[in-house]
Design a protein around this nucleic acid. Structure first.
Lengths: 157, 157
DNA sequence: GTAAAAATCATCCTAAAGTATGAAGCCTTT
DNA sequence: AAAGGCTTCATACTTTAGGATGATTTTTAC
């Protein structure tokens, strides 16, 4: 199929190829003419392009990369709490018993008398007695005052 | 207007002027070449040097600096005895009114409702209303819990 | 100017806190 | 063994705190 097509139109193909070659030759000659006529300018241009590229390459490769460091300070608040240092002296001075101190600590945690009683496995009345003696020793009238004073005196954290 | 245009396109204008000067220089060198025929190598060398420099300049001026963002976390330790730093975020989240916050602060100081009322020149009932709304917002049942939670959340010192 | 939020005050009621007093059991010290 | 402190518990009572609801005024936001 392909072979028969080639043999049939051999002359036409040959003519076409010759024409193409001729046009190509003409174009090439034209180009050569331009090149020959402007050989010097083109040479200079080539030099310029090559050395500009060289300059860019040198600059990019042989210099330290430009890095702009942006430092964003982010403050992180650390609730260190500051190690609690028990004020032993004040504690001694108040003369609180161990049970009273326990009650005071649970009061500071926000527990009610009933809850404290449950926590310590004693009756509500017992806690009331403890708290009364506690208030008396601490010279306060209410649990809120006791807690405030205890924190101020560093008896509890 | 004109000044801003100038400053805005400073690089372009500068480049244009440089190019013009360069062309002038080239023309002058060409003339010299005609006169001094032996300086061809020097001419080429000058071209190479100039365009290398141009390439370097271009690369340095027209490349964008890489931006590296470094986040430095700066820890801020908050000591127990140190300055109190209000936890604005938590305070906002609770949605306490200014009056409620006042009441809370006086509660933390160990004052009774009656005393708070006297301090703020309002009736006891008003303080009760405030405290009720306060407890509701803070999701607590008692003033001692409110004070404990407020101190824990750093809403009050 | 209207709607929403805040602040104020009141009444009634219940729950919790606090006072006063007494008492029993368990330690330690004298 | 007696004295004193600690813990426990109880009863009776007063005070304070807290809940529920309704209302008025003021401030704030749209």
């Amino acid at each position: 199929m392909a072979a028969s097509f080639l043999s049939k139109h051999k002359h036409i193909i040959l003519y076409g190829v010759c024409l193409a070659l001729l046009l190509f030759l003409l174009k090439w000659l034209e180009l050569r003419l331009i090149i020959i006529n402007h050989a010097f300018e083109m040479y200079i241009g080539a030099i310029a392009v090559i050395f500009t590229a060289l300059g860019i390459w040198l600059a990019l490769k042989l210099t330290k990369p430009k890095v702009r460091t942006v430092i964003v300070e982010k403050e992180v608040y650390v609730q260190h709490g500051g190690e609690f240092t028990l004020n032993e002296q004040e504690l001694q001075q108040l003369g609180l018993s161990s049970r009273e101190l326990e009650v005071l600590q649970l009061m500071a945690a926000g527990l009610s008398n009933q809850e404290i009683a449950g926590r310590l496995f004693v009756s509500l009345n017992t806690i009331k007695t403890h708290s009364s003696r506690l208030f008396e020793k601490m010279d306060v009238k209410r649990r809120t005052q006791a807690v405030e004073k205890a924190k101020r005196l560093r008896i509890i954290p």
